[in-house]
Amino acid sequence: MEAKNHTEVSEFLLLGLSEVPSLQPLLFGLFLSMYLVTVLGNLLIVLAIISDAHLHTPMYFFLSNLSFVDICFTSTTVPKMLVNLHTHGKDISYMGCLTQVYFFMIFAGLDNFLLTVMAYDRFVAICHPLHYTVIMNPRLCALLVLMSWFIIFWVALVHLLLITRLTFSVGTEIPHFFCDLTQLLKVASSDTFINNIYLYVSTVLLGVFPVTGILYSYSKIVSSLKRVSSTAGKNKAFSTCGSHLCVVSLYYGTSLVEYLSYAVTPTSQSSAIASVMYTVVTPMLNPFIYSLRNKDVKAALRRLLAASCL
């Protein structure tokens, strides 16, 4: 097939999760339900935290940011997939594809950073309780979030600029339900050596440092709790970390499942199915994890729903 310059390519074709016509209505209903639950659940968490003065603390400030990012994260990929399932189409415009790649990288990276910042917050709260309010002051909390946005904004922008240098064949098919960066590089007609080098470097830096930060924080927390003689004190400390640990395990666990599924059965369809776990399922479960395991959040949600019914 003749290679064309990227400026001449008007659209790509997203192959989706399945090409079986009879499955399209079922997939549409399933993902629409999951998307609505994700948006509603995370929106309720954000509104509950904003409206309740008891939750105006660093931990819940970061949680509200995480919930907002999760809404944006799932909204980057799912709506376009729903449109294609409903219309039985596969097309996505060239600019639409690049936009999806860009914002997907931003919100995936922000999830990474926010989970790390939340681990640091728990480390300070448990290991340095007397200095917690001084260390985790509003200025530092805002700075940590802004730094996360700043770093991932530029990392994603460089990825985007490198993609615009590539050429693609007319009618290029992307074997995924959204424009995934790795899949896009595989179907490019031109040399992607620089793109791959930058992808590996940024993945290592943005993956290793956050994971290392989380592991370091929890190693210090466990070490600190060993010196606590009170069982009630240990249980209270673990309860404040439980929800965060569940979300971290879910986020990195589903990412690992995707990597292993592709490594064991290196097919594009297996990769796409595994991607559903961290792009759709994880953002949907986060509100349930934090609301079911946290008495303060449950109380705030009850007050919010009661006020809305008046």
Rank of each mutant, 00 (worst) to 15 (best):
F177V: 02
P175S: 05
L14Y: 03
V222R: 11
Q24F: 06
V37N: 05
S255A: 13
N5G: 10
S51P: 04
F31P: 04
L85M: 10
H176M: 13
S75Y: 00
L215F: 14
V69F: 05
V201Q: 02
V228W: 05
Y290T: 09
P58G: 10
I197P: 01
P283F: 01
S148K: 01
L162E: 01
T57L: 14
S275G: 13
T240P: 02
L15S: 04
I135S: 05
I152M: 14
P266K: 07
M34W: 03
K295A: 15
T279A: 12
Y60S: 07
L206C: 15
T7I: 15
R293H: 11
C127M: 07
Y132F: 14
M59H: 08
Y35T: 04
A125F: 08
V83M: 12
F104M: 07
T77R: 02
A263Y: 03
V101G: 02
I221S: 04
T77I: 10
G16I: 04
F168T: 00
V201T: 10
L82Y: 06
A272L: 06
D91C: 10
S75V: 05
E11G: 05
V117K: 03
V297C: 14
Y278E: 06
D111P: 03
T282L: 15
P79M: 08
P266C: 03
A300H: 03
Y60I: 07
V297S: 03
P175T: 03
G16E: 01
I163L: 15
C246V: 12
T192H: 02
L27M: 13
Y35F: 13
L260K: 09
A300S: 15
I45S: 05
F12D: 00
L63R: 03
N235F: 12
K186N: 00
L184G: 00
V117W: 05
A188W: 01
F177R: 00
S202P: 11
T231N: 12
I135A: 09
L161Q: 10
L40G: 12
A125C: 05
T282S: 15
A53S: 11
P210D: 09
L162I: 08
F104P: 01
M136H: 04
L115H: 02
E258N: 12
M59P: 03
R293C: 15
L161K: 09
E2F: 03
V37Q: 05
M1Y: 05
A53G: 05
L110D: 01
H88R: 13
F73P: 04
L292D: 01
V145F: 13
V211G: 02
Q269K: 11
V158D: 04
M277S: 15
